[in-house]
Structures are given as C-alpha cells and as structure tokens.
Amino acid sequence: MSADVVSRTVGTRTIIELDGVRKTYATGTIAVEALRGIDATITEGEYVAIIGPSGSGKSTLMHILGCLDVPTEGRYELAGRDVSDLEETELAHIRNAEIGFVFQQFNLLPDLTALRNVALPLVYAGVGPHEREQRARRALERVGLADRADHRPGELSGGQQQRVAVARALVTEPAMILADEPTGNLDSVSSADVLALFRELHDSGRTIVLITHENDVAAQADRVLRIHDGELAS
C-alpha cells in the first residue's frame, strides 16, 4: 500500500497514451470518421476533463478510452499495455482491472443492494465472497455511504446513487476512473456533491478522466482537452 501511495505522489507513470487514433464507422456505403487522429497522454494522478459538443466524437473517444471499443487505426496504450487490437474477452478483463466507470444514468442494478452493486466488478474479477464484502464496504465508506449498504438503488436519492456508482468504480483499484457526464442526471446540489467527491479522490492520488459538455463541470479538472469534429484542439 505504501509503495502505491509513493508512486502516486511521484506521478510520472503514463496511464494513457493515444497515438494517431482514428475511428471510422461504416453505415452502408457512407463511412463516418468519428475520430481523425487523436494524440494524447495522461499521466498517473491527473484530473483531466474532455469537453466537446454533441457530435464532436467525445462519446467515441470515451468508448475507446474505456476499452468498450477499439480504434480503426492508431495505437492506444493503457497502463503500459497496448490494447488497440484486443479480443472481446481480453478487453473485458482490462475493463475489469484497469477502468472504473461512472455513467450518466448511474447504471446500478435495481434488484441488488448498494453493497452488492459495489461488489459486482469483484465478482467478475474472481474475488471470493468474504473479501468482496469487505472491499465493497470500504469503498462505500470512502464515498460516505457506509450506512446505506443494504439499501436498494430505488431507496436512494440520485446523488447517493451516483456515489454508489463511484464506489463501484473504486472497488477494483483501477488505473483510472472514467466518468461519462456524471452530473448529467443530477440537480445542482447533488452535482456539486459528486464533483467534490471527484476532487477528493484526485487529491488522494486517483487518475480521473471526466467527459462532459458543460464548461463549469470541465472547469473542475486540472487540465481540459477540447474535442471538435474528431480532433483535439488545445
């Protein structure tokens, strides 16, 4: 643990390395270029916002960063591993180990308690039930919802649900937290609350990539990457 903390404070390890990433969607005979050569580097412990209007290629970039999709051309290295050409099963393992997702819609399973929702990624990591519960409880404590562990999502407010989702993103100790419009479905109070949580996580050394179309949300980050028509404008 202590070695981990040290390496985070040093913050020189490269987490994300994008090199000439292109993504082309073929719809019938028409090919749409969603990304036209993206080069970017994000190092450990950074808090980066990617901002762009809808149709800018921001979602496509998020999918590639999140290993939900692979680039048509170019190279993507995540935590030192080239993930540009991996198979679906290998991508699933990478997503499980290296990425903590936070979605606009929270995407909690309504039939599971907060604790079981948080523990879900550990199930796919093959962690045993006892350790799963302990780690999920610690993650819930981290987001200040230890007392809501046995509540189902329907019994929680929007802000609380998003905190549970953040806990779920943290539980596997991923290389980065990838948040896609995390405040899009929240009122201003809850939004501020969740953004404060991200700031706190960043302060404790977490790498956070936040995708948004709102300038004041992007302003929370240390560095802002603007995407427009599939290209980064710095």
Binding site: T89, H93, R95, F103, L109, Y124
Partner: peptide, 14 residues
Amino acid sequence: REIGLRKALGATPG
C-alpha cells in the same frame, strides 16, 4: 442495459 453494464464492469461474453 444490465448486460451492457455487466460487460462494462468486466463480464466476458462467456
């Protein structure tokens, strides 16, 4: 959506 989420969290197709 549940399937998508499970996959995003690391569920393999298998």
